[in-house]
């Protein structure tokens, strides 16, 4: 079954086509990565999928329902949660209170929401920091907090916007298994990611966005060897030059 489907999504900002006729489908249970050079429109695409921006044309279907034009909170209530590339903690509140805001989507009782926050914190490795104010967390901690809050809404689909960006290699190695465990628990994941090591080890399938268009999709290994992808990152003609000089891309 298809969890998320986009058909012909487009949005322009002034003269720039930020997302230009993107169609994609993410089947239930998949961990799909969305990659592309800076300015490719990845975060804008996430905003279109999660209702933070309304597309000028095209449609989004989530879990069998058309959600185009719906407000973000309503889409979240249907089971689509997102994180932000630039972390957005409720800085004055404790880690537990931050996560409880997400938990309240499904739990009315304050006590239940706080208890569920503890449980989610354990899943993402924040159990030791529950009483700290969110502002006291390191960048890695804040990324985990983004993940925890989204997870606390009990989503069917998670859109992760660069949860590994800004982390050092040890921190990345610590978060990768967390993401894998989320997928293994039955949550479908679509993640924007620049850390290719993580993409290669995590993703079932990779979508490549460049200049607002999807230029390639396939299994990670094939994508890494795709000349179109190499050129999108390194410039036109690079693939051919690399091939001539005998070096693998």
């Amino acid at each position: 079954m298809t969890m998320l489907k986009a058909a012909g999504l487009s949005i322009r900002f002034g003269g720039v086509a930020a997302v230009d006729g993107v169609s994609l489908a993410v089947p239930e249970g998949e961990l799909c990565a969305l990659i592309g050079p800076n300015g490719a429109g990845k975060t804008t695409l996430f905003a279109l999928l999660s209702g933070f921006l309304a597309p000028q044309s095209g449609a989004v279907e989530f879990d069998g329902r058309t959600v185009t034009g719906m407000k973000p909170h309503a889409i979240c209530a249907l089971g689509l949660a997102r994180t932000f590339q630039i972390v957005q903690p409720f800085a004055a509140q404790s880690v537990r209170e931050n996560i409880a805001v997400g938990a309240h989507l499904r739990l009315r009782s304050r006590r239940d929401a706080l208890a569920f926050a503890d449980e989610v914190a354990r899943r993402v490795g924040l159990a030791g920091e529950l009483d700290k104010p969110a502002s006291a967390l390191t960048i890695a901690g804040r990324k985990r907090l983004e993940l925890a809050r989204a997870l606390a809404t009990r989503p069917k689909l998670l859109l992760l916007d660069e949860v590994l960006a800004g982390l050092n290699p040890q921190e990345i190695d610590a978060v990768v298994p967390v993401v894998r465990a989320i997928r293994d628990s039955g949550v479908t994941v679509l993640m924007i990611e620049h850390v290719m090591r993580a993409v290669m080890s995590l993703a079932d399938r990779v979508l490549v966005l460049a200049g607002g268009r999807l230029i390639a999709e396939g299994p990670p290994a094939a994508i890494a060897a795709d000349p179109r992808v190499v050129e999108a990152y390194l410039g036109q003609g690079t693939a051919a030059r690399l091939a001539r000089s005998g070096g693998a891309p």
Partner: peptide, 26 residues
């Protein structure tokens, strides 16, 4: 201070976009 409504209200105060992303109807 001890209810879901209050938690939502404070979340909106602290970051409305993040609250909306967590299902809060601001």
């Amino acid at each position: 201070r001890h209810s879901r409504f209050g938690a939502w209200l404070v979340a909106i105060r602290d970051n409305e976009a993040a609250a909306a992303a967590l299902g809060v109807d601001a």
